[in-house]
């Protein structure tokens, strides 16, 4: 196969793969009256911004809540997982093997089951339908992943660097904060990106733990939309387009981190 031919085929395959994404964007601009047109409008000529106006009018609180939940989840995930990764990578301790094993297992537990346990706990603790409760639950998706990424990354930091800091009189905590963390920037970025994206995309915890909450994330915003006004598909798809922005940004800004994140943990080097 010649190279230009490959590029051509590659473009066609990508176009097929991304057709649903295109369709979402197209429908978000389609007028209500054209929504059930036969044949369907393949391009949003004569389109409308009604859908996006609806998003501005109705979905802003949901988007704001999702942003706060996402940032909160990132902070919590980093605080828990970065020190743990350092300990597992550099401070040999007896339980390390067991802990690694537990973390791998933890990633495999279906979210819906965690949600049920959390529901029972939250109901009695009175944190059901609260944003902090949801942040805490969402962080369980990212913490095991975070520890694995930090462990893998920090194992690559030369011992000499850490020892040098400690000879200069720095405590372990100082060394961690002033030497290890700054050189682990890539790992911090990767973990933060995924923690944010998973919290932003979470539906399982949102619907079980925050279904009656005053502040609800965007995933529930879309879900209520689908349930309530089945006809206004341009508004639903416009919300979906807006909800996809973080994922898109992530891909544009941090492509290499994304691919690294997918493969990390799955395949041993």
């Amino acid at each position: 196969m010649t190279k230009p031919l490959r590029t051509g085929i590659g473009v066609i395959l990508t176009a097929i793969m991304l057709f649903p994404v295109y369709w979402m964007i197209n429908v978000s601009f389609t007028r209500d009256t054209d929504m059930r047109a036969d044949p369907p409008h393949l391009f949003p000529f004569n389109g409308t911004l009604e859908g996006y106006r609806a998003v501005l009018d109705q979905q802003m609180p949901y988007l704001g809540t999702s942003l706060i939940i996402g940032l909160g989840t990132v902070a919590l995930t980093l605080i828990i997982s970065a020190p743990a990764g350092y300990a597992l990578a550099k401070l040999r301790s007896r339980g390390a093997g067991v802990l690694n094993f537990v973390l791998l297992i933890a990633q495999m537990i279906p979210g819906i089951i965690m949600a049920m346990g959390f529901y029972a706990i939250y109901l009695r603790a009175g944190v059901l339908n609260t944003v902090p409760g949801l942040i805490l639950a969402d962080s369980t998706i990212a913490v095991p992943f975070g520890v694995l990424i930090f462990t893998a990354f920090m194992s690559g930091i030369p011992d000499e660097l850490i020892n040098a800091a400690m000879i200069d009189g720095a405590s372990r905590w100082r060394t961690f904060r002033s030497v290890v963390l700054p050189v682990s920037r890539n790992a911090i970025v990767t973990v933060s990106l995924f923690a944010f994206l998973w919290a932003w995309s979470d539906f399982v915890f949102a619907t079980t733990l925050d279904g009656g909450g005053e502040y609800q994330p965007i995933t529930l915003g879309i879900y209520h939309y689908i349930g309530n006004n089945n006809q206004q598909w341009n508004a639903i798809m416009a919300t979906a387009v807006i909800a996809s922005i973080p994922a898109t940004l992530l891909l544009i800004v941090a492509q290499r981190y994304v691919a690294a994140g997918v493969t990390a943990g799955a395949v041993k080097d």
């Binding site: 395959l13 649903p20 994404v21 539906f203 691919a259």
Partner: peptide, 29 residues
Amino acid sequence: FKLSATLRALFLVPWLLPLIVSASTWSWM
């Protein structure tokens, strides 16, 4: 080949989208 890295990156999009977005798009399709 030309564009191969870019196209490969674009293939990641479905995996990164929130599931509610993919699910509602497929529902309408």
